[in-house]
Design a protein around this nucleic acid. Sequence first.
DNA 1: ATCCGTCTCATACTAAAGTACCAAAATGAC
DNA 2: GTCATTTTGGTACTTTAGTATGAGACGGAT
Lengths: 136, 136
Amino acid sequence: MKKTVITFGLLILSLLVLFQISKYAFVSGDLKIELVIAIVAIVFFIIGVYLNKRSLHQERLPEREIDLTKVKALDLSDREYEVLKEISLGLSNKEIGDKLFLSESTIKTHVSNILLKLNAKRRTQAIQIAKEMHIL
Amino acid sequence: MKKTVITFGLLILSLLVLFQISKYAFVSGDLKIELVIAIVAIVFFIIGVYLNKRSLHQERLPEREIDLTKVKALDLSDREYEVLKEISLGLSNKEIGDKLFLSESTIKTHVSNILLKLNAKRRTQAIQIAKEMHIL
DNA sequence: ATCCGTCTCATACTAAAGTACCAAAATGAC
DNA sequence: GTCATTTTGGTACTTTAGTATGAGACGGAT
């Protein structure tokens, strides 16, 4: 909300400044009126694009872009997060072990810890929870 | 590509039109120069917002909605698809059975058929495959 | 040096998941 | 009505998944 007020304030301010410049240019005759209008047009075009991108970017953030901050907040270790990603790819414990050059026992330990930390009962639920938190 | 050319053509055209209007207004003295600049600013601001929204909208399209056509193509029956959705929510066979008022045996049968039709070895893999096909 | 956290692995166990095979009831098409 | 498909459910069995517990190795912090 504060940012919106600030940006719109700056927008109005720049508009007034352009008014003054144009008036001065008109009186002094240094600048041609076409040039002033062209500059105004370009500047406001860019402002429009920029503001729009900002607002749309905020809308899009919820979808996509993994939030690694939350991984730390959940106390998930590097290995655990790595295993979590493999789980979401649909691999079995055995397959994950082979892929990461670890024993199945190790993967089971990691999986158990993941389920505890994500508060999930099953690996499928862990996937769902992780995706909801934008960790995957 | 064609649309881009057309929109930029119209953009340049409107710029020229505004030049003419401003020049005419300047000569005739009907319009104040501030007003002309303000109109130019507003118009190009709107154009900027509009063009940006259009281009960003196209980027977002690829993440589309569920494709029910492919559900049929995979030979998934209504019940099977329903069970598949519950699996992706992380529910166990027992829980799915309770939710849909069916026995666990029935769910197991459905799950086995789903795995066959999706060519998956595990339910986690089925989730991954289904999401890749935009079925979930 | 000691403590802490992570990573590793093992054994033993329980609980789900998944397969195979069968079969009855319901549904809709012909 | 007959036929094919779907839906439902069961038994018996194998395979994964997940829990509990313990323990050695290793690196970083105090």
